[in-house]
Design a protein around this nucleic acid. Structure first.
Length: 887
DNA sequence: ACATTCACG
DNA sequence: ACGTACGTGAATGTG
C-alpha cells in the first residue's frame, strides 16, 4: 500500500523555531528549527513508514491571494534572521535525506499540499498531511488525514472526518466557513467582528455555511445580526482567502516523491555538519537504509580478514604487496619525532596484514621495508607526514606518498578541527570505528592491547582509508582542487618531512650562557618589584599582579578581562607614568618570556644525538593555508626586540664553515592584494618597487613623497596592515591610539585613493555571502558559515575573514610553491645546501661556503618566479654565521 | 580544561 | 548600537 506524507515546511519550521531553545553549532550557525523539524521528520518516517514524501514551502512574498486582498498576512512580524538562515539548511538536509521538496512562486505551501493531496486521493492513495495550521483540515477525507502539531511540535494529532465531526461537529469543507466567520488574526483575515469560534460554530450548526448564514440574518438579532449584515462582504472574502486552492500547476510526478529510506551516504555528512550528534546516534545507521529510531547499537561491522604477519605469512604478503591499496601506521604520542610505533596494517581490498613494530625491525620483513621506502610505489594513508617521521626515527625510510586523506580533508574544509579518522568515517558514512580511547585507554591508563585487538582495530582504520580515498578524489575534482592537492600539498608534505628530519643546529653552550644573563637580570628585577610592592607575590600570576597594582597601589583600571583586571603590555604601557614598578614589570615580563619559552624551552627540544632541534610543521591546521610549527615552534623566534633577537645567534649551521641563508618576500600580502584587486595605484606602486607605506601616505594624505613624515608613514603602515586584516575603524583606532572617527576618516581616504581595493573588499564579502566560502588564487577554500549571521560580531568577524583569507592564503600558496620549486632546484643543480625552515614569508637554508654565491642568486629568483602575478614578487636575501647575522 | 599573556608573520 | 583588527604555539596560573 502506497502512502504519501505531505509536510507544510513553513508551518513546521516556524513552530519548530519557536518551540525549540536556541541552538547553534560550533560555528554559530542557528540550527534549532532544523533540529526540531528533523526530529519530527524521523519520527514520522519511523511511525508511518511512508513510500512517498514531499515537503512544500511557500515561495516569494506575493501570492494570488494578495491580488484580491493586499493586506493578506499583513502586520506579521518579519521572519527573524535566526530562522530565515535555516531555510537553506533545511532544503540541503532534505536533499541529503533523499526527500523531495517543492515550492512555486505565487502559491503557498497550503495550496501545493491541497493540490497534491487531491491528486493522491483521486488515484486512491493514502495521504497524511502534516502541518500546524488548522485551515488544512478542509482537505480531510476518507483518504486524506491531517496531522496537526500539538504542544510545539513534539506530538501530532491526526484528524480524519470523524475527528473533525467529534471536535467541531462539522464536515471538513465547513472548516472554510468557520474561518470565514471567525477570521484569522495571524493571516490578517478579518472575519466578522464579534464572532469567535464559539459563535461561528453555533451559526454553522444551525445554517451550514457562510452563504446560508448571510441569507438568514433576518432570523438573528442584536449586535450579532448587525455585524453580520455590515460585514457580509468581509465574511465572503474571508472565506475565499481561507479556501485552499487545489489546482496548482504542480509539476511533480508521483515518482518524484518516492522515498527509499534515508540515504546514509549523504545524510550522515549533513547531520555531521549540523552537529546533530544525538540524531546521528539515534539513527546509528545499520546499513539497511532505514531510520531505526530505537537506541539499538550499530550492527558490528563485518569482520575483516586480518593476518598477523610472522615469518610464515611473509611470502603471502610479499606476493600481495603490488596490490596494497592503503596503509595505516599507529604511532603514539603528540610529537611525531618521538612517537612510539605501535603497529602497521597494509591492506588490499579484501585482506589486511598487521605487522608489529618488532617484526618490522626484525630483518624478516625486508620486503615490506623496501616497499615502504620505494618512492615509485604510491601510498594511500592517513597523516603520511607523521608516519614518515615516526618511521624515520626507527631507521625506516618512507616514500611514495600519493594520497593522504587527512591532507585532503584539510583542503576540503580547513576549519574542521576534528580531523580524526573517526570523524572522517562518520562524515563519509563508513562503518564506525571503535574509539581509540576504548582500545588503548585514556591518559595514564594508556596501554597496548593484545595483538588480536590491535590488529583488527588498525585493519579497520586502513580499510576505512581505502574507502575514503575515492570519495575525496571526487570532492577534490568537484572543487577544482586536484592540482592544489597533487601538485602542491602532497609534494610539500614530503619536503616538510625532509626539513624536519634535517633539523637546525642549536649552540647549546651559547644558549645556556644567554640564559644566565637573562637570569641575573630577572632576579634583579624581581627584587626591585617586591621592594616597591612591599610584599612578595607570584609575579607570573596576572591575578596576584592585578591585586598589587590595582588594589594595593591603586593604579587606574584600564581594561578588564573575563576573570578580573587585565595586566597585558598595552595596559602596563599606559600605567607606566604612575609608578616605576610598572616599567620593571614590563621588563620582567619580557625577560621571563625569553627565559622560559626560548632558553629553557629550546634547550629541552635539543636532541642530544644531533645537537639539533627538529620542529614539526603542521600542514593541516591553519585555516588560511599557512603552515604552523610545533615542538618547538620555530616560526616565532624573537626578532622585534634586540634582547630577544639575540636568541637567533644560537641557530647555527650544522657543518663546520657553512652559513645560514635567509630570504624573505617583501610585502607579499600587499602585492597579492594589488594583484587580486587589480587596483591601478597599488599595482603601479609595486611595478616601480616603491616604498609602499610612503606611497600609501602620499595618496591618503594627498602629499608628495618629500612631505611624508615619519608619523604619516607610521599611520599609513597601520592602515595597510588593517587593509590586509579586513579593516575596521575600531581596530585601526586601537592600533594607532586615535579615535574611531579619525580612524574611519583614514579608511575612507584610503579607499578613495585605492578604489580598486574598495571594490575588492565589497566584492569578496558579497561573493562570500552568496557562496558561503572564499578562495585563494590556487583554489584553496575556506567556508564562512557565519557570513550571514544576524549576530553583528559573528558576521563582522566572518566579513573580515573573507577579506583577509584570500590575501593571507594566496601568500601561503605562493611560498609553498616556492618551496616545491626550491626543493627541485636543489636536486637538479646537485647542491648540498639544505632548506631548513619556513616562516610564512621567509625561507631559511644552511649552505656550504662554495655554494653561497649560487644560492644567493638562486633562492630569491626561485621565490620570485613561484607564481606569475600582475605585479612582480620580490625576495630579499642575506646570510651569516648564524640566524641572527642572516638579517 | 581554560584563560591570560606574548612571541612571530 | 553593536565592540575586533588576520593567522599561529608555548608557558603559566587557576578552577
Amino acid at each position: 500500500m502506497e502512502k504519501l506524507i505531505l509536510i507544510d515546511g513553513n508551518s513546521i519550521i516556524y513552530r519548530a523555531f519557536f518551540a525549540m531553545p536556541p541552538l547553534t553549532n560550533s560555528s554559530g550557525l542557528h540550527t534549532n528549527a532544523v533540529y526540531g523539524f528533523t526530529n519530527m521528520l524521523l519520527r514520522l518516517i519511523q511511525e508511518q513508514q511512508p513510500t512517498h514524501i514531499l515537503v512544500a514551502f511557500d515561495a516569494g512574498k506575493e501570492t494570488f491571494r494578495h491580488e484580491g486582498y493586499q493586506d493578506y498576512k499583513g502586520g506579521r512580524e518579519k521572519t527573524p534572521s535566526e530562522l530565515s538562515e535555516q531555510f537553506p539548511l533545511m532544503r540541503e538536509l532534505l536533499e541529503s535525506f533523499g526527500i523531495a521538496w517543492f515550492e512555486l512562486p505565487g502559491y503557498e505551501a497550503d495550496d501545493i499540499i491541497g493540490t497534491i493531496s487531491k491528486q493522491g486521493e483521486e488515484s486512491g492513495r493514502e495521504v497524511l498531511v502534516v502541518t500546524g495550521d488548522k485551515d488544512m483540515l478542509q482537505v480531510v477525507s476518507d483518504k486524506v488525514t491531517v496531522a496537526l502539531t500539538r504542544k510545539g511540535i513534539s506530538e501530532v494529532e491526526p484528524f480524519g472526518p470523524n475527528e473533525i465531526e467529534e471536535k467541531y461537529g462539522l464536515r471538513p469543507l465547513q472548516i472554510i466557513d468557520l474561518k470565514g466567520l471567525m477570521g484569522d488574526a495571524s493571516d490578517n483575515i478579518p472575519g466578522v467582528p464579534g464572532i469567535g469560534e464559539k459563535t461561528a460554530l453555533k451559526l454553522l450548526h444551525q445554517f451550514g455555511s457562510v452563504e446560508e448564514v448571510l441569507s438568514h440574518t433576518d432570523e438573528l438579532k442584536g449586535k450579532m445580526k448587525e455585524n453580520l449584515v455590515n460585514h457580509a462582504e468581509d465574511a465572503r472574502m474571508s472565506k475565499r482567502l481561507a479556501t485552499i486552492f487545489r489546482e496548482v500547476p504542480v509539476e511533480r510526478s508521483w515518482d518524484d516523491m518516492t522515498f527509499n529510506g534515508l540515504q546514509e551516504e549523504t545524510a550522515v555528512p549533513t547531520l555531521r555538519k549540523l552537529e546533530f550528534k544525538s540524531l546521528l546516534e539515534r539513527l546509528s545507521f545499520t546499513g539497511t537504509g532505514e531510520a531505526g529510531g530505537s537506541a539499538a547499537p550499530a550492527e558490528p561491522a563485518p569482520e575483516l580478514d586480518v593476518t598477523i604477519v610472522d615469518s610464515a605469512a611473509m611470502p603471502a604478503l610479499t606476493e600481495l604487496l603490488p596490490e596494497i591499496g592503503s596503509l595505516y601506521v599507529e604511532a603514539a604520542g603528540e610529537n611525531p619525532h618521538h612517537a612510539e610505533l605501535m603497529g602497521m596494517v597494509l591492506s588490499t581490498p579484501d585482506r589486511h596484514f598487521y605487522i608489529s613494530p618488532q617484526f618490522l625491525k626484525s630483518g624478516e620483513a625486508e620486503s615490506v621495508v623496501a616497499w615502504l621506502g620505494n618512492e615509485k610505489i604510491s601510498k594511500r594513508g592517513y597523516d603520511l607526514h607523521r608516519i614518515d617521521l615516526a618511521l624515520h626515527w626507527e631507521g625506516i625510510s618512507f616514500a611514495g606518498a600519493y594520497f593522504d586523506i587527512q591532507l585532503a580533508a584539510y583542503l576540503l574544509d580547513p576549519t574542521e578541527n576534528d580531523q580524526t579518522l573517526s570523524a572522517l568515517t562518520a562524515k563519509y558514512g563508513i562503518s564506525r570505528l571503535v574509539s581509540d580511547d576504548e582500545v588503548y585507554g585514556k591518559g595514564a591508563k594508556f596501554k597496548v592491547p593484545d595483538d588480536a585487538t590491535l590488529s583488527s582495530h588498525l585493519a579497520r582504520k586502513s580499510d576505512s582509508i581505502m574507502k575514503i580515498v575515492p570519495l575525496q578524489q571526487a570532492e577534490l575534482e568537484k572543487n577544482e582542487m586536484k592540482s592544489l592537492f597533487y601538485e602542491l600539498e602532497m609534494p610539500l608534505s614530503r619536503i616538510l618531512a625532509d626539513m624536519e628530519k634535517q633539523g637546525i643546529a642549536v649552540n647549546r653552550e651559547d644558549l645556556t650562557e644567554l640564559g644566565k644573563e637573562f637570569e641575573s637580570q630577572i632576579s634583579r628585577l624581581v627584587l626591585q618589584i617586591y621592594e616597591i610592592a612591599g610584599v612578595e607575590f607570584n609575579l607570573n600570576s596576572p591575578k596576584q599582579l592585578g591585586e598589587i597594582l590595582f588594589d594595593k597601589l591603586g593604579l587606574p583600571v584600564i581594561k578588564k578581562t573575563k576573570t578580573g583586571y587585565s595586566t597585558d603590555a598595552e595596559v602596563l604601557e599606559k600605567l607606566a607614568p604612575y609608578n616605576e614598578i610598572v616599567q620593571y614589570i614590563l621588563e620582567y615580563r619580557q625577560l621571563a618570556k625569553l627565559q622560559s619559552t626560548y632558553v629553557e624551552g629550546l634547550l629541552k627540544e635539543i636532541r642530544s644525538e644531533t645537537g639539533k632541534v627538529h620542529t614539526y610543521f603542521r600542514q593541516t591546521v591553519a585555516a588560511t593555508g599557512r603552515l604552523s610549527s610545533q615542538f618547538p615552534n620555530l616560526q616565532n623566534i624573537p626578532i622585534r626586540m634586540e634582547e630577544g633577537r639575540k636568541i637567533r645567534k644560537v641557530f647555527v649551521p650544522s657543518e663546520e664553515g657553512w652559513l645560514i641563508l635567509g630570504a624573505d618576500y617583501s610585502q607579499i600580502e600587499l602585492r597579492v592584494l594589488a594583484h587580486i584587486s587589480g587596483d591601478e595605484g597599488l599595482m603601479e606602486a609595486f611595478q616601480h618597487d616603491m616604498d609602499i607605506h610612503t606611497k600609501t601616505a602620499m595618496d591618503v594624505f594627498g602629499v608628495s613623497a618629500d612631505q611624508v613624515d615619519a608619523n604619516m608613514r607610521r599611520s599609513a603602515k597601520a592602515v595597510n596592515f588593517g587593509i590586509v586584516y579586513g579593516i575596521s575603524d575600531y581596530g585601526l583606532s586601537q592600533n594607532l591610539n586615535i579615535t574611531r572617527k579619525e580612524a574611519a576618516r583614514f579608511i575612507d581616504q584610503y579607499f578613495d585613493a585605492f578604489q580598486g581595493v574598495r571594490k575588492y573588499m565589497d566584492d569578496i564579502v558579497r561573493d562570500a555571502k552568496r557562496d558561503g566560502y572564499v578562495k585563494t588564487l590556487l583554489e584553496r577554500r575556506r567556508y564562512l558559515p557565519e557570513i550571514n549571521a544576524s549576530n553583528f560580531n559573528l558576521r563582522s568577524f566572518a566579513e573580515r575573514t573573507a577579506m583577509n583569507t584570500p590575501i593571507q592564503g594566496t601568500a601561503a600558496d605562493i611560498i609553498k610553491l616556492a618551496m616545491v620549486l626550491m626543493d627541485e632546484a636543489l636536486h637538479t643543480h646537485g647542491l648540498k645546501s639544505r632548506m631548513l625552515l619556513q616562516v610564512h614569508d621567509e625561507l631559511v637554508f644552511e649552505v656550504p661556503p662554495e655554494e653561497l654565491e649560487a644560492m644567493t642568486k638562486l633562492v630569491p629568483e626561485t621565490m620570485e618566479k613561484a607564481l606569475q602575478l600582475s605585479v612582480p614578487l620580490k625576495a630579499e636575501v642575506s646570510s651569516g654565521v648564524n640566524w641572527y647575522e642572516a638579517k
